[in-house]
Design a protein around this nucleic acid. Structure first.
Length: 667
DNA sequence: AAAAAAC
């Protein structure tokens, strides 16, 4: 019974109905419309998974026989070097973008003054039903809403008053460019030229000659080094010294030295060198043939360091903490042995395929998209040995998830809220869960997540195996570790520092009022670009800004319903838009192939956020560039942030139109 | 303070 857990549930009923408190989605007209242009362009239309159909509001009513064979899907997995394939499942190429204006009636009047009036309207963003904007007067800004091209400053009051209330929002009209500003520009130039701080920072090139010709000095960065850059090689790189690792402020103040020291020590204890795993196969690590074969099909032919380090310990049944940098293959590191172990544990159990059986493994992730992505890796692995997964996350109707649970699944993958919800209402029995994974574990142990997470952990089988993974795994997990793990093995990969990264970091110092114009220039290149903003409102605003400037952009953030979030991500993944503007919902874990440039329109607040955002590019050993736009008044703060993140970036003052911006945009 | 995560 292939694809049992994905089988359509809930028939033809409109899936948006149960999932969202808000008034319904776009009109039926909108949903049904098939754009000839898109269909013609794409030729063959990629098929949708059941989830995508539901997520896009089309109903999960396709007969099972039409479900694409696995070979047709493009499962998502942690990237595998040159074998990397597109990781986010292909989304419908044929999706009407400009049909049905229902959601955007608050912007209908805008069309008349759009400079790009013939371009399709951004009807699919849907301000109208979002709570955060609920009090925004509709159509108020219609006639007088200024076009937001750079140089065409928005008038305050058009939407500034009731829209994003941002402290650093430029009071454009009230701040004509002054001599003082000019003066400061000169100062910044000076700052740049005598900037001494790079020398104070840890230099990796001293004992790592292979990077000497790469990013060791700012002059080398000007270009041309890429082709000469030697291949990555961890072999003789010294172990990371965690003693130097910057601590989180709050943790520093929190006095529980005992636990923290233990975790910290353990983290140092077992560092695996990539050279140690050379020649090792997944089979050597203890995975069965079917799983090994499936991994190869996913593109994972040989284990990455983090995988080689953790798989044996997971198979032995012990608790494991794993730390491997972004894009290093953590999903397989816990997913594959988890499946193998379930299989071993159920050997000889003739009730293992019982209808309605309770899940025995649980994987928790901080966002729905990440949960979905993990499932795209774990599901085929599980399937290869006859186990079933299902996704349990919020924002979508219950019916399909409940149906899957009623039939019985082996592995539940999801986000805390809905899992707790179903667990509390007795629909999801966690008592048989003997393996629990916290992906992005440090984040899952933070305020806001810790409570539901611990409640879920409390419901799982006592003494069960627990696996905590994150690129930024730190002592923030100490409480959870202390409470729920027993003598965990702690693994990391040696030499994962900035010098061994394929990601280059740059900071553009600019005038706050120039931010949007510079962003437009940066985002205008051909490659995929991911833009991060600090708030939902600003993300939304920037996507509009770029769209109005003729750059196809989508936004993704928590104010959008799930189908819009998924659609935005799909469009970005399959290249139908080149720019995705996101809040930190997309900061962790999400893998999209070939993001060449990450732009931080706002610097993040936390160094870990910086690392995760940056990790959306430079995946699987590819080159990546992170550009952070920093207004002068945030310079200090950003310097501190980068220092904590252990990142060396080149700082450059810029103005709109600078050649450097264009150069960076071309990457 | 924001974002994420249930309805």
């Amino acid at each position: 019974m292939a694809y049992n857990t994905r089988a359509p549930q809930g028939g033809k009923k409109n899936p948006t109905k149960g999932g969202h408190k808000k008034v319904g989605g776009p009109s039926a007209k909108h949903r049904g419309y098939q754009p000839e242009a898109d269909a013609a362009r794409s030729g063959k239309k990629p098929r949708w998974s059941s989830e995508q159909r539901v997520a896009n509001g089309l109903g999960a009513d396709r007969p099972r026989g039409q479900r694409p064979e696995r070979g047709d899907e493009r499962p998502n997995w942690e990237p595998r070097g040159k074998d990397a394939r597109a990781s986010v499942e292909r989304a419908p190429a044929a999706r009407k973008r400009d049909g049905g204006y229902g959601r955007r009636d608050d912007r209908d009047d805008r069309g008349s003054e759009r400079r790009y009036g013939d371009r399709p309207r951004r009807d699919d963003r849907g301000y109208g039903d979002r709570p955060a904007y609920g009090d925004r007067p509709r159509a108020n800004h219609g006639g007088d809403r200024p076009h937001r091209l750079a140089g065409d400053r928005p008038q305050r009051g058009s939407y500034g008053d009731d829209r994003a209330r941002r402290d650093d929002r430029p009071a454009r009209d009230e701040r004509p460019r002054s001599d003082a500003d000019r003066g400061q520009r000169t100062e910044r130039t000076r700052y740049d030229s005598d900037r001494p701080r790079r020398e104070d920072r840890p230099r990796y090139d001293d004992d790592r000659p292979r990077y000497d010709d790469r990013r060791s000095s700012s002059d080398d960065r000007r270009g041309g080094y890429r082709d000469e850059r030697p291949r990555r090689d961890y072999s003789d790189r010294p172990r990371r010294d965690y003693g130097d690792r910057p601590r989180r402020d709050d943790a520093e103040r929190a006095p529980r030295p005992m636990v923290e020291d233990v975790v910290l020590e353990r983290l140092e204890a077992q560092a695996t060198l990539a050279s140690d795993v050379e020649g090792v196969t997944f089979g050597d690590l203890g995975l069965g043939q079917n799983i090994v074969r499936e991994l190869a099909e996913l593109g994972a032919t040989a284990p990455f360091a983090i995988q080689a380090a953790t798989i044996p310990d997971v198979l032995s049944g012990g608790d494991v903490l794993g730390r491997g940098r972004t894009g290093s293959g953590k999903t397989i590191a816990f997913g594959a042995p988890l499946v193998e172990r379930l299989l071993t544990m159920q050997a000889g159990d003739n009730k293992r395929r019982e209808f309605g059986r309770a899940p025995r493994a649980l994987i928790l992730a901080p966002t729905r998209e990440l949960a979905l992505q993990i499932d795209r890796t774990v599901q085929p692995i599980a399937r290869s040995v006859g186990l079933f997964t299902t996704q349990i996350y919020g924002g979508v109707p219950y019916a399909r998830q409940l149906g899957a649970l009623e039939r019985g699944v082996d592995i539940v993958i999801g986000t805390p809220g809905r899992i707790q919800d179903l667990s509390a209402s007795g629909k999801l029995d966690l008592s048989k869960v003997v393996i629990t994974v916290l992906d992005e574990a440090d984040h899952m142990c933070e305020l806001g997540f810790a409570e539901p997470v611990t409640e879920i952990l409390d419901r799982t089988a006592e003494g069960g195996q627990r696996l905590l993974f994150s690129a930024t795994l730190d002592k923030g997990v100490a409480d959870i570790v202390e409470r729920y793990l027993t003598d965990p093995a702690v693994h990391e990969v040696a030499g994962e520092d900035q010098a061994s990264s394929t990601i280059e970091h740059r900071v553009l110092l600019l005038d706050q009022r120039d931010k949007q114009e510079v962003l437009i220039e940066l985002a205008s290149g051909p490659g995929k670009k991911l833009v991060f903003a600090r708030t939902r409102a600003f993300a939304e605003q920037l996507a509009d800004l770029l769209d109005d400037a003729g750059i196809r952009a989508e936004s993704i953030h928590g104010d959008l319903n799930q189908s819009r979030r998924q659609r935005a991500l799909d469009k970005f993944s399959n290249g139908r838009v080149t720019v995705l503007v996101a809040t930190d919902v997309a900061a962790r874990g999400i893998h999209v192939d070939d993001i060449g440039l990450v732009i931080q329109a706002d610097a993040p607040d936390e160094y870990k956020a910086y690392l995760h955002r940056a990790g959306r590019t430079g995946r699987a050993g590819k080159d990546g560039l992170v550009v952070t736009l920093v207004p002068r008044n945030r310079r200090r703060r950003t310097e501190e942030l980068l220092k904590r993140a252990d990142i060396v970036a080149e700082w450059t003052p810029v103005e709109p139109g600078d050649a450097l911006i264009e150069e960076l945009a071309a990457r």
